[in-house]
Nucleic acid binder design. Sequence first.
DNA 1: TTGTAAGCGTTATCAC
DNA 2: GTGATAACGCTTACAA
Lengths: 339, 339
Amino acid sequence: MVTIKQIAELCGVSRGTVDRVLNKRGNVKPEKEKLIVEMAKKLNYRPNPAGKALAARKKHPVVGVLIASEGVHFFDDMLTTMHHAAERFSSYGMEVIWRSMKGFDAAEQCRIIDELKDKISGLIINPVNDQQVIDKINECVDNGMFVVTINNDVESSRRHCYVGSDYLQGGRTAGALLKMICPTTLKAGVLLGSLNMLGHNQRLEGFQEVMHNHPDFTLLGVAETADDDLQAYEAARSLIADNPEINAIFVVSSGGYGAARAIQAVGREDITIVAFDTIPSTIDMMKKGLIKAALYQHPHQQGRRAMQLMFDYLVNGSLPEKNAYIMRNEIRILENVAD
Amino acid sequence: MVTIKQIAELCGVSRGTVDRVLNKRGNVKPEKEKLIVEMAKKLNYRPNPAGKALAARKKHPVVGVLIASEGVHFFDDMLTTMHHAAERFSSYGMEVIWRSMKGFDAAEQCRIIDELKDKISGLIINPVNDQQVIDKINECVDNGMFVVTINNDVESSRRHCYVGSDYLQGGRTAGALLKMICPTTLKAGVLLGSLNMLGHNQRLEGFQEVMHNHPDFTLLGVAETADDDLQAYEAARSLIADNPEINAIFVVSSGGYGAARAIQAVGREDITIVAFDTIPSTIDMMKKGLIKAALYQHPHQQGRRAMQLMFDYLVNGSLPEKNAYIMRNEIRILENVAD
DNA sequence: TTGTAAGCGTTATCAC
DNA sequence: GTGATAACGCTTACAA
């Protein structure tokens, strides 16, 4: 509750001087600086965000949001919440520019960043795992942009913060759940988006790790789906045809709907499907009893957090407390999946 | 992004007049009022929370928090988050007075409210289900206090908002989960805090509702524990002694630890326990494999939401969008329970 | 019934 | 180097 004004009075200087010290703008005599810093610490000075926000309005910060969301329904909830947050923040003078893309083309993503970069002071991005993109992100950071990666991290970049889910934990949780709800003998197939996606691999890793001490577990096969329900459908049909003994399918990313349609098509509703993300098509299949459980990686929280980090930095001038914000994987079954 | 100043200029009046209209303080000529209201609507005026917060500092709003939390570890996480939020909000000039109590004594709770009521302008309370308390809450509301009930609602009161979990859904989810992870034959005992607690009854109701279409389900008995682990221990031992065929225990509220110790003591680790709340003692028992799953009712979110509602009202002057904020019940197993 | 002015805490500009 | 001053949007007390 102590203010700059109070510190100024106590130190016998003006507010401007205190401000210069606290915001490290230099041009203050070292002895005064020391006095002010110590006084601020002693009184536990915390800047008032309301005052900061008000003063920040003159800056009109603009944020770019770039997500490879087209055709991937997982991002729908995340974007809904981000739009909601953007509207809330708009009254503080923060503006958002929205961009989307389809698929994981690094060159395309770099092109869009280039198009945005001189318009924005902050970027929220779902980055493609590619050196070209990493370089581009570093370039942005070097030019003073605040960068938050979301749902997929590129650790080797100098992005300020990452918001996403715990992929390894997701795989472990799915595996452990399957062990709980399946018969003792577990013969499972895995459908995953892409072996090039770090997160998908980590989920698979967690899954296998948990299965390691299972008395009778067989991994029948791993098929890629490109997060496409049609490909998932075909892959599931092949898995079943090639391995009639299959009794479980683990869908590592999108594609749960396709897998469910497949077991229905071949009359193998006895197969237990555990999938990721509670998108509408997955919920439909849960209602039909074809998908037993889905793991939820808090898309709303991810979106809200990313926008909040942007706001806190651009409007309130405060850096993230953590380098990464990792969401828990929740287990959803029919009874607790509905809104 | 339109401000009061702009509206004033466009309407050819002063900021004060616009403020009087927008905040319904009266004393404005009807024709001007109409003009201003229409202009504000047309320009989609949204007050800037930073400006409001800054001006509100002169009011020094004080919030009372009264939770029957003593001895109930469920509230630990909730209170941690509330303290954290209180610290954040303190820089906006909002202060919090903390009070706790043990057990559900209505007279005691009223006494504490009386002690608080002339010091505070907002109250967050975990109310005892009792007419005396309801009357007291209504009295507070009538005197202009903003009241949020948390974790337990007294619907017949005129509290402004409720924050809590979906008890019926919690029971249904626990039941469905038990069906998934238990053998076909399900012979279950239930331990619950108190039959006088509406929420506990609703959880039991949801549980039984789901069991209704189970091929072979028997409810062996329901015992009260007063949310005490020792009583839960004794109750579980009795249940097992009286019904050796028991293969599952559903712990509706606190007491999971006691139940787990009981099955351990009598060497009946084959019994599947599903409990509520991921408090440390429950997590311990999950690590030991004695509790298979726990339902999580988002204590952090509950605390955060309640504090935010207070802040939004007292500092920003905005009422809750909803009458009640209901949290989902999450399923936690060993693999996704840790921090 | 309406306008003016001061103040909330912070930042930025400008003059000394 | 430093201090005074205006500005951000809103509320409120007081003057007209």
